[in-house]
């Protein structure tokens, strides 16, 4: 595994995002929706605060509970919608254009190719997250939020988005059709998101299993400022399995 080879692939794919309108559209859409959401949450929080003071309702909700958790929670939902657009082309387009033959006949390993592609999409997500730093900066400038939950929210969101990326890369390796890859990514990401809904109806054992499988149930701790190793391990395993399955798919593609 040579970092140089991984970087060669990552840089090429990252540049490709910006050669077409796709990256600009995704980033612009993301900023627009998040900006609106942040504004809405902020004004709602202010109003709530005023009401608490006016009617002497006791301690008003903290910035963490009133702003950080809803904003970053919603950000995860936005990523659920956007990631399929980020990953859908990664392998399907290489297959369609036959450029996969260039990659596969170059002296680099399949793992390097997959990691490079994952890294390129991760970089785009990191840029998107970087832009949202403007929200905590605003909060620090005007108020006194807790740093911990903000940091863990970013870690959690990055990990959760990486899970979607890994899922998206896997589906992209299965087909030549970008739309099919994107749709499958969205559907399966949604499934892993909602899988714990069934846990209420399931028996005790299954309820636990479904809860464990759910992508969102592992995010809750991050939102509260807790960094739980089991959550991190879950997300990392999810990413690892997605990339491993991609490796298997592409390797078997050679044998067919």
């Amino acid at each position: 595994m040579s970092p140089r080879n991984v970087w060669t692939i990552a840089r090429k794919d990252f540049r490709t995002y910006f050669m077409s309108p796709i990256a600009y559209i995704i980033i612009a859409g993301f900023m627009l929706i998040m900006g609106w959401m942040f504004f809405y949450t902020l004004s709602h929080f202010e109003m709530q605060n005023m009401q608490y003071q006016q009617f002497n309702m006791g301690k008003s909700p903290s910035i963490t509970d009133g702003i950080i958790r809803p904003v970053y929670g919603n950000m995860n939902v936005i990523f659920l919608f956007l990631v399929p657009f980020i990953t859908m082309r990664l392998f399907s387009e290489e297959k369609k254009q036959h450029t996969i033959e260039l990659l596969m006949t170059s002296p680099i390993t399949l793992s390097e190719i997959i990691l490079g592609k994952f890294l390129s999409s991760l970089l785009l997500v990191v840029i998107m997250l970087g832009i949202t730093l403007v929200y905590p900066i605003t909060l620090f400038a005007t108020g006194n939020p807790e740093l911990g939950p903000i940091v863990t929210s970013y870690i959690g969101t990055l990990l959760l988005a990486s899970c979607y990326l890994s899922l998206g890369i896997f589906f992209s390796s299965l087909t030549e059709n970008q739309i099919v890859a994107g749709s499958l990514t969205f559907a399966s990401a949604l499934f892993f998101w909602l899988v714990n809904w069934a846990s209420q109806a399931a028996g005790p054992v299954w309820s636990e299993v479904l809860n464990y499988l759910s992508l969102i149930s592992h995010y809750n701790n991050f939102g509260q400022g807790l960094l739980n190793s089991s959550d991190v391990i879950y997300y990392l395993s999810f990413i690892g399995i997605g990339l491993f399955l991609t490796h298997r798919v592409l390797d078997s593609f050679r044998w067919r």
Binding site: T99, L102, T105
Partner: peptide, 18 residues
């Protein structure tokens, strides 16, 4: 082996956006 070969497949493996 791959280090020692240059390959032009049936369909030239080029990226149209590059």
């Amino acid at each position: 082996v791959k280090r020692n070969i240059g390959f032009l497949p049936e369909n030239p493996p080029v990226y149209p956006e590059m």
